[in-house]
Design a protein around this nucleic acid. Structure first.
Lengths: 237, 237
DNA sequence: CGCGAGCTTGACGTTGTTCAACTAGAGTGG
DNA sequence: CCACTCTAGTTGAACAACGTCAAGCTCGCG
């Protein structure tokens, strides 16, 4: 049912057979490679360890990636600097490279250990072009990403440092953890890359948040003490 | 063949019947509402005058828009400020609002007089969901926009003022005019909104470009004197 | 001729960066 | 077990980039 021919370009199997792909609770993947058929879509599951590079911006895109478990960081590279676009804990990445030139537009690294399904791009496109309902879901997925991106552009271009830090902290509550206390799996440098700040400025701002009783942070532990005030900082900055 | 029922929500006809829609050289629109059929896709042509608001961010999206002639400005609004995302002289706008919430994610104004085709969103989505080849083209269109957006994020977040101005000037050569001399249909304020600068800073930078023999500008007339140097400013800034 | 919008210019203030010094903790090897 | 080193993080001071404010200029238009 699933092609496992090791000669296939995308068949990077170093893991057990991709059983989950066939019985995944996620409807998008089910649509694609579930029991309903679509055995023609070439795919393969594997695991990346924390810190590993999953996608390198500028390389040829042989597949799109579906993140099944774990957290990934999507970022743009420009010279020696990185601009983090978003952190995702599931769903597709690399969809934007389809139908353009054949290169990945951004880099992606594993923030935690992640389980992904690599889906060979030509068979994926072929599937899109034969299943309009599926194509519509992909459009939906891409558009959701676009929408977050617009919000992000506002944050990065129209807000000052304090508000940018507040936005990122709030974003982790809303989109990732669901709680006001969390341990971030990021260094200060990575955090700074999300906010377009220097590590020094970020450090000073986190200190201010602490002394003003808004956010307690100790190393990578964060506790939002006064969410309302943080929201306000996000709004007025 | 074309529905002209004035009771239709999107039927804003104030212009002659949408003849061009039926015989347009642009394959995308032909696909959609050409002679091949698809008369079920409700659409309507009309003209916006220079300066008019075509899409207001935050309003309900009753249609997607295909720009047939003229130039439009796409921008995000945040408080009293605007962030110009791109200037387009053709193609779809508003595609990103499909399948998310039902609101437009950005505003669009007519930079010149523009002729557009408004395509009712539900029938457009219906068409996507029944024509996978067409859906693939829409994905391609959205992805091209995404790609430009990534470049734009780099410009806006990773480059300094001089390089941002250089980028915009180069962009007009490459994507809009095709020549190194052009008359911009923008005020300094609008130009500033493209570069995330104050009008004063922009003014100073244009003056520097002039005294350094890179770009001659007089009001809205621009002449790129030394493109290579301008490219270099874009790259190192 | 006078008005107002768009644009420019100069002086000054604010924001955030850079550089350098310092601290704390984690690994390493004798 | 203790020096040594390395990395991540913090702090302070000087500096650069850009914004803000205020004034003046230019040109089209009534």
């Amino acid at each position: 049912m699933i092609q496992r021919d090791p000669s296939k370009m995308f068949d990077l199997s170093i893991d057990s057979p991709c059983f989950d792909c066939m019985h995944n609770e996620n409807c998008m993947l089910d649509d694609l490679i579930g029991e309903k058929g679509s055995s023609e879509v070439e795919h393969n599951e594997l695991v990346y360890s924390k810190g590993e590079l999953i996608i390198k911006q500028g390389t040829i895109a042989p597949h799109v990636i579906f993140v099944k478990r774990g957290m990934v960081k999507v970022f743009l590279e420009h010279r020696d600097r990185k601009q983090v676009l978003c952190v995702e804990k599931g769903g597709f990445v690399g969809l934007e490279s389809m139908y353009n030139d054949k290169f990945f537009q951004y880099s992606v690294t594993a923030v935690t250990d992640v389980k992904v399904c690599l889906i060979e791009i030509e068979s994926f496109k072929k599937h899109i072009e034969t299943d309009a309902q599926f194509a519509a879901k992909i459009i939906r997925h891409i558009n959701l990403r676009s929408r977050n991106l617009y919000q992000r552009i506002i944050t990065l271009t129209q807000k000052q440092a304090h508000a940018r830090v507040a936005d990122v902290l709030i974003c982790f509550i809303e989109r990732i953890y669901g709680t006001t206390s969390y341990d971030l799996p990021f260094t200060r440098k990575e955090f700074a890359e999300m906010t377009t700040l220097s590590v020094e400025s970020l450090s000073r701002i986190l200190k201010e948040f602490k002394t003003e009783g808004v956010v307690n942070s100790d190393g990578r532990k964060f506790e939002i003490v006064d969410l309302e005030k943080l929201q306000q900082i996000s709004n007025v900055g």
